[in-house]
Design a binder for these strands. Structure first.
Lengths: 173, 173
DNA sequence: CAGGACCATGACAGTTGCTGACATCACTAC
DNA sequence: GTAGTGATGTCAGCAACTGTCATGGTCCTG
C-alpha cells in the first residue's frame, strides 16, 4: 500500500515490494499468486461472511430477504475488519487501475456464483436463483460505492439496505 | 480461435498467433492492446447497441422497461452478428480461463456504468439509476448463460425478457 | 541427543507478454 | 516528382511469472 500510494501500482515492481518486505521476488510469488493479489488478501473471509450468512438466513425468510441480510452482514464484516479509511485508500488504488478492477470484478462474480449455487441447493430454481444472487450483489456494490463517496456518513449495511430497498419502486414505476 | 481451440489459450503464444496471421508479433500488439483482446473485438458495437437502444427507449417508458428493451436489443444484435454457435465456441474458451473472464467482466461493468450514466442524464437519481442498470445487466447475463446451455431452443432476447420478468415475483415472494 | 522429514526461503535461469525507438515501404495529395 | 502519412518490420529491453535445485530451520521420533 505504501509503495502503490507513492508511485502508483504499475510503476511499482514486484522486486521493489519484495525488497521492502525483506523478501525475495521468488518468495513473494509463493505467498501471492500474482502481483495483484497483495491487494486482495482478505477476499476469502469476505466471501465466507457473505455466503455463510446467506445459508443461515435462508432457513427463516424469502430468498431476496436472505440475500439482503447476507449483503449487509458482509458489509458489516468489511466495515469492522478494515474500516472506511483503509477501504477508501485501497479503492483509490484499485479503481484507477484496469487490471486491479478486473481482479475485483472476478472475485465479486465468484461470490455471486456461490450465492446462486447456495440458493439452488435450497430449492430456488433458475433463473430466480441467479437473478436473486445478482440482485443482492448489485445492492452491495451500489451501497459500497456510495459508502466511499465524499461526505457520506451512513454505515455500509445501512446503504446496502437502502439500495436493495429501492428495487420494489424501481420495478413498480 | 483455431489456435486457442487446439492448444488452449495459455499454451498459445502471441508469436504463434502472429505467425498464423502472417504478421509480426509487434504488429499484433498494434492491432490489439493485449493478447486477450483478440477475443473481444466486437465489444464496442455491442456496447453501442446496448446504450444506444437504452437512450432511445427512455423517451417513452419507465427506466426498467427501457433497460429491458436495451438488453433485449443487445441480445438480438449479438445473436444476429455472431450467432449461437460462434458465441458458444467463444464462451467455451473464455469461461475456463480466469484472465479472459476478467476481461469479459470489466467490459460488462463498463457498459453497466454507461447505462447508469445515461439514466442519470435522463433524471433518474441514485441509487435508482445504478440499481436499474445493474438489474438490466443481470438480466442479460442470466439470459445469456441460459441461451448457451445444452438443449436450449429459445432466442436470446426471449431468455433475457424472461429473466427480467422474474424480478417482480423474486421481490414479492 | 542424533537423524530424518518436512517447510519456508534463497539463488538462478528461462519463457512470455508487452513497449519504445527507429527503419522501410506503399500510397496519396499537391 | 516530392513530401507526407500510415502500416509494418526489426531489434533491444523490461517486468511478470515459473521450474528447479540448494540451504537452513523446526519438529518429531527413536
Amino acid at each position: 500500500m505504501e509503495l502503490f500510494s507513492e508511485h502508483g501500482y504499475e510503476q511499482t515492481t514486484v522486486a521493489e515490494i519484495a525488497e521492502r518486505a525483506g523478501l525475495t521476488e521468488r518468495t513473494f510469488f509463493r505467498h501471492y499468486s500474482d502481483k495483484r493479489e497483495v491487494l486482495f488478501s482478505g477476499g476469502d473471509e469476505f466471501r465466507d461472511a457473505f455466503v455463510g450468512r446467506l445459508e443461515e438466513a435462508l432457513d427463516s425468510m424469502s430468498a431476496l430477504q436472505a440475500v439482503t441480510i447476507a449483503a449487509q452482514a458482509a458489509g458489516a464484516s468489511l466495515e469492522e475488519r478494515v474500516g472506511r479509511d483503509f477501504a477508501s485508500a485501497r479503492q483509490a488504488i484499485v479503481s484507477v487501475n484496469p487490471a486491479l478492477r478486473e481482479r475485483e470484478l472476478i472475485k465479486i462474480a465468484d461470490i455471486t456464483a456461490a450465492m446462486a449455487q447456495a440458493l439452488r441447493l435450497r430449492g430456488v430454481d433458475e433463473p430466480d436463483a441467479s437473478m436473486t444472487a445478482e440482485l443482492g450483489m448489485a445492492g452491495f456494490r451500489v451501497g459500497f460505492d456510495r459508502w466511499l463517496a465524499a461526505g457520506e456518513q451512513r454505515t455500509l449495511p445501512g446503504l446496502i439496505h437502502e439500495a436493495l430497498g429501492r428495487i420494489p419502486s424501481v420495478v413498480g414505476s
